[in-house]
Computed example of a mutant assay.
Amino acid sequence: MALFVKILTKIDVERTLSLPDGCLQALPEYRGSHVGHGKELQVKDDVGILWNFRCMIRAGVVRKLDIVSGWIQFVRFKQLNSGDGFVLYRDDDTLTGARYMIEVFRSYESSSFVHQNTYLA
């Protein structure tokens, strides 16, 4: 099941990824987390590589989840740029629990990709 689509900004590809509003509800593992406490998020990409992202909840009026480590290595490996995007998927397995997958797309694909996947979330 697709959780969300994110079009990357300049800050996302140069420093850290700030996940969209509402993603805390889509990631139940983080709902009870406290501001400043980090947790690992393992994500498998579209070619089967497992990525370990360190996530932290940012304080503020609206709490947001930021990926603070592992993300820049992913961006460089995938050669992502501002305007490119990704979809985060979740698959619940009764034996192993939740598994997350990430699929990236280039900016020239983004308008048709987002339009085609509007109803997945």
Rank of each mutant, 00 (worst) to 15 (best):
L24C: 11
L24W: 03
Q25M: 12
Q25Y: 09
A26S: 14
P28D: 07
P28C: 10
P28L: 11
P28S: 13
E29Y: 06
Y30W: 15
Y30F: 15
R31E: 09
H34S: 10
H34L: 07
H34D: 12
V35S: 14
G36R: 05
H37C: 10
H37S: 14
K39M: 01
K39F: 00
K39Q: 03
E40C: 01
E40A: 04
L41C: 10
L41E: 07
Q42Y: 08
Q42D: 07
Q42N: 08
V43R: 01
K44I: 11
K44S: 11
D45F: 07
D45T: 09
D46E: 15
D46M: 11
D46F: 07
D46V: 05
D46T: 11
V47K: 14
V47C: 12
V47L: 13
G48V: 12
G48Q: 05
G48R: 09
G48N: 08
L50F: 06
L50E: 07
W51M: 07
W51H: 08
W51A: 05
W51V: 02
N52A: 11
N52P: 03
F53Y: 10
F53R: 06
F53K: 04
F53C: 06
F53S: 05
R54T: 06
R54G: 11
C55G: 12
C55E: 10
C55M: 15
M56S: 05
M56Y: 00
M56P: 01
M56R: 00
M56I: 01
I57A: 08
I57H: 03
I57F: 02
I57V: 15
I57C: 05
I57L: 15
R58T: 01
R58L: 10
A59H: 07
A59S: 15
G60M: 05
G60E: 12
V61F: 10
V61L: 10
V62L: 07
V62W: 03
V62A: 12
R63G: 02
K64W: 05
K64T: 12
K64C: 07
L65C: 14
L65M: 13
L65I: 06
L65E: 01
L65T: 02
D66W: 00
I67G: 03
V68R: 05
S69A: 14
S69E: 14
S69Y: 01
G70T: 01
G70W: 00
G70L: 03
